[in-house]
Write a protein that binds this DNA or RNA. Structure first.
Lengths: 151, 151
DNA sequence: AGAGTTATTGAAAACAGTTTTCATTATACA
DNA sequence: TGTATAATGAAAACTGTTTTCAATAACTCT
């Protein structure tokens, strides 16, 4: 088992631009609502719910509607830029999908998310396939606890 | 990384009785509604939603109400007998919580669940705590795919 | 730049899943 | 068996999400 390696957000502004470009190059128009949602989520280091995004997004675009938040999230998810996070309470939150892979460390108190590498589940997954007869497509590895600022 | 080891359900009827006893010894009354929910969920090898349990439970107790399903699940969860499962689609399903530990293998098609042991995440978790500054409380390891009957 | 096309928007309504309310019923205990 | 009260189910209320639809704003073509 290799050493865990925390992945830090390098440049949030760059990510914002990438997402907007990606929306545009896929035929979607760039609107104030989409900009607001993208800017908030791409620069967040916490998982955010649709309601969170609406509340925060209103500060950037005061006519933002909750419906547009949902519709923007739908597109970002479809483009693979955003992924859903299932918190222990079961509620839907979103984070940027840096990696195809979902190895997450979530703060139970503030929702802060760290993404990391460093397990070795590929091999284990193959063995599990043999033992179970399943054809395994994906896995989730998520850790929950309190971040340094919350405890 | 040790060999994965599938945990099979040994005796579903025994589990049913244990759950009913546990409810009773915690001051809850044994009613037809609770019996129906417990019997269905304790003998299931799939994750079931509240609506599933209501539909199937009606066959055992034709006056069952959906509300009682929710209330029974609440109690079973509180007693640690049942745990929620988060499917990729985000919807809430329930399975019996054999282990304190949630190492699951879920079929994306039929919802069948296998529980297994055999990772070695304790050590990894400790290293991750050091690298991240988090105080880690729990982890989820879930694999998704198609079971042998579905592919 | 201006006009036209049409994707996108937000308000309201609809919808699905879950919880609360409350009068009635059924369980456990004396 | 009778009694106190926990538990029930129908209906209403609520929350989160999606759909509908007329108005608006973004891109395209000239």
């Amino acid at each position: 088992m290799p050493q865990p390696q925390i992945i830090t957000e390098s440049n949030a502004r760059q990510k914002t631009l990438q997402w907007l470009e990606s929306l545009q190059s896929n035929g979607y128009r760039l609107t104030s609502s989409r900009r607001a949602v993208v800017e908030v989520l791409a620069t967040a280091d916490q998982s955010l719910t649709a309601a969170d995004l609406y509340r925060i997004g209103l500060e950037r675009h005061k006519r933002l509607g909750l419906v547009s938040v949902y519709r923007t999230l739908e597109k970002l998810e479809e483009l693979g830029l955003v992924q859903r996070v299932h918190r222990p309470d079961g509620c839907h939150a979103y984070i940027s999908a840096l990696e195809g892979h979902q190895h997450l460390l979530l703060c139970e108190s503030c929702g802060r998310v760290e993404i990391f590498r460093g397990d070795n589940l590929k091999e284990f997954s193959r063995r599990l396939e043999g033992a179970s007869g399943f054809e395994i497509h994906e896995h989730w590895l998520q850790f929950f606890g309190l971040c340094s600022q919350c405890h």
